[in-house]
Design a protein around this nucleic acid. Structure first.
Lengths: 141, 141
DNA sequence: GCATAAACGCAAGTAATTTGCAATTACTGG
DNA sequence: CCAGTAATTGCAAATTACTTGCGTTTATGC
C-alpha cells in the first residue's frame, strides 16, 4: 500500500481538489494497485463509489495535476497509475493476453536484452514503443 | 519516395495479400508520407480509392504482417507508418498541436537532452513514454 | 449555518473502430 | 482464357471508449 493510501484526502487537498468520497475511494483503490489499470477495471471495482462519468472526470483532473499517469498500451483504452508512488519504471505488455509488468528504469544500454532479464514474467520482448512529448517550436510560449 | 512506392504490388504479393487497387493505392500513399499518419488523413486522401472499412482492414492486415507500424500518440486514434522504409527512429509529439517529428534512434544516454538536440522542430521535451511488447511466460509457446 | 463553487449522476452525444453480410474481384488450376 | 474458390469490398449497423449538457447535490470557506 502506497504512501497515499491512508492520506487520500490530504493528497486531494494539496492539489486543490474537493475531498469527495468518490475521489478518496478512487485514490485509495489506485494506491492499492500494482499495475496500471483500465477504466473498465476501475469502474467494476468502484461502481458503488462513483459513477463512470465522475470516474473519467476524476482521472482527468488527477492526470492534469500530475497525480496520476495515463498510459496507452495499444489496447484501445487507457490505463492509469498513481504517479510518484514508486520509482520511475517502464512496462512490458504481453501481445497475447495484455498482461502488464513493471520494469525498473535503468541505464539504457542493450535495452531490450537487459529489460528482458528484468522482466521475470516475460518470455520474450520483441518490440518497444518510445514516444517523446513536449512542445514544438510553433507552440512553445 | 520509398523503395516500396513503385513496387506496391510485389510487396503485397510477397506478403500473400491480393493485389487490389485499393491496397496498392494505400501502400503508395503511405510510402509518400514522411510522418506517421492518422486514419482520418488516409481516408480523406484515399476516399476515391477505398472505403473506410477496407482502409481499416487493409491497415490491420499490413500491421499483422509487419509491413506497417501502428503508433499511439495519445490522440485518441492510431497513426500508421510504413515499416522498414527508413532506419529505426522515435517520434517527438507536440502536446499542444500534435505535430510529430522523427528522431533518429541513437544510444540512449541523457536521452531527453540529446533527443531535444535532434528535434529541431521542438522547443522542449518534457516527458516520454516507453513501452515494451512481447509475450509473457504464460502466453509464450 | 450559508453562500458559492466544485463535483455528481443521469441521459444523450460523439469519435474511432468493428462486425455482418451480400456483392464483387483477384487468384489458381485446367 | 475460364471457371471455381477464396479473398476482398462497400454499405449499414453495432460497439467501445469517452465526452458533454444540465439540473441536483455536496464540499469548502467564511
Amino acid at each position: 500500500m502506497s504512501l497515499y493510501a491512508d492520506r487520500a484526502d490530504e493528497f486531494l487537498q494539496a492539489h486543490k481538489l474537493s475531498r469527495t468520497p468518490g475521489r478518496i475511494a478512487l485514490l485509495k483503490f489506485l494506491a492499492a494497485q500494482r499495475r496500471p489499470v483500465s477504466v473498465e477495471y476501475l469502474r467494476r471495482n468502484l461502481k458503488n463509489e462513483l459513477d463512470q462519468v465522475s470516474l473519467y472526470r476524476a482521472l482527468e483532473a488527477f492526470v492534469e495535476r500530475g497525480m496520476v499517469v495515463q498510459f496507452d498500451f495499444g489496447h484501445g483504452h487507457a490505463h492509469y497509475e498513481l504517479a510518484h508512488d514508486r520509482p520511475h519504471h517502464h512496462h512490458a505488455v504481453c501481445e497475447s493476453c495484455g498482461t502488464i509488468e513493471d520494469i525498473p528504469a535503468q541505464d539504457r544500454r542493450d535495452l531490450l536484452k537487459s529489460t528482458l532479464q528484468k522482466s521475470p514474467g516475460f518470455a520474450q520482448l520483441t518490440r518497444h514503443s518510445l514516444e517523446f512529448y513536449g512542445l514544438c517550436v510553433s507552440c512553445a510560449p
